[in-house]
Amino acid sequence: MAQEVLPVKAPKTSKPLRRRHRTGDSWMPILTLAPSIGLLAIFVYGFIGWSGYVSFTNWNSFIPTLTWAGFRNYVTVLTSFRFQSDLRNIFFFTILFILGVLVVGLILALLIDQKIRAESLFRSIFIFPMAISFVVTGVIWSWLLNPTTGVNLILKSLGIPGPQWFLSTRFVPTIHLGQLSIGIPIALLAVVLAAVWQMSGFSMAVYLGGLRAIPEELKEAARMDGASAWRTFWSVIFPNLKGTTATIVVVEAAASLKVFGLIYAMTGAGQDFTTDMPNLNMFQTTFSGDAFAQGAAIAMLLLLLMAAFTVPYVLSVLRGER
């Protein structure tokens, strides 16, 4: 791509005959890409730059005060109890969510790969939750897991005391760091459950593709060598799914860091901010609190977090291409 950017001015210069064919070929991609590059430049990178700029200003009311504030907004955000809780929550949410999606997706894919009857029916059933919006998922699961209604009523009729689900304020383990409790918020597990339910269909589909791509001969060879099914899986199949797993991890990590609709509809910020997320905080800070600069600061911090996941992946893909 980098080589093609150079001869931009080529068509208008001399040496018409000899290079016509080449130039004709090289300005076409540029022209075709120009609109999307232009739109990306304005609506993605331009706005990222603008948000970055706003995050260093004093624009924390309806009056757009664009005077320089330095890192003050970042200090305010980073020292707030709410944002610190958000960081803890997003950390545990991402890990648990990705683990859940990988494990559930892989199990479903392995089950479907057993040459069962009505395979496409089951595939559709497992993928179907993905077609539902996160808001719908959030509302359904908030009803299901409300401790006074929902599944707890079934548990109660069986004589089992139901858990507090997303209303729990417990942490496992409970490590106090100043005002903040570090540990997995139990309330977050309910949200993870809903998110995994929705998104494991995706990882199942990707894993299924990965499984089908493994040559039959490999499995056959393992079987011929007398490997058990378990051994075949761990030594032959699983290593061949490494790339698939990496793809799922990156895609789901991005989805997880951006989670908003699910939280907004299901739990809100939660008791003691146990289910709050940076995105929800950003939305409320910006549009309920009218603190545009602080909201922008949260957005930039979120961008850095996101980059930490995606940049290594993009780099490794680029290296692979070369």
Binding site: S61, A269, D272, F273, Q284, S288, G289, D290
Partner: peptide, 19 residues
């Protein structure tokens, strides 16, 4: 009260309810 105060107040309220 102004939106900035209100938002901060509601955040503090979340903390108060558990602490």
């Amino acid at each position: 009260a102004n939106p900035g105060f209100t938002q901060a107040f509601e955040n503090d309220m979340v903390t108060l309810l558990s602490s």
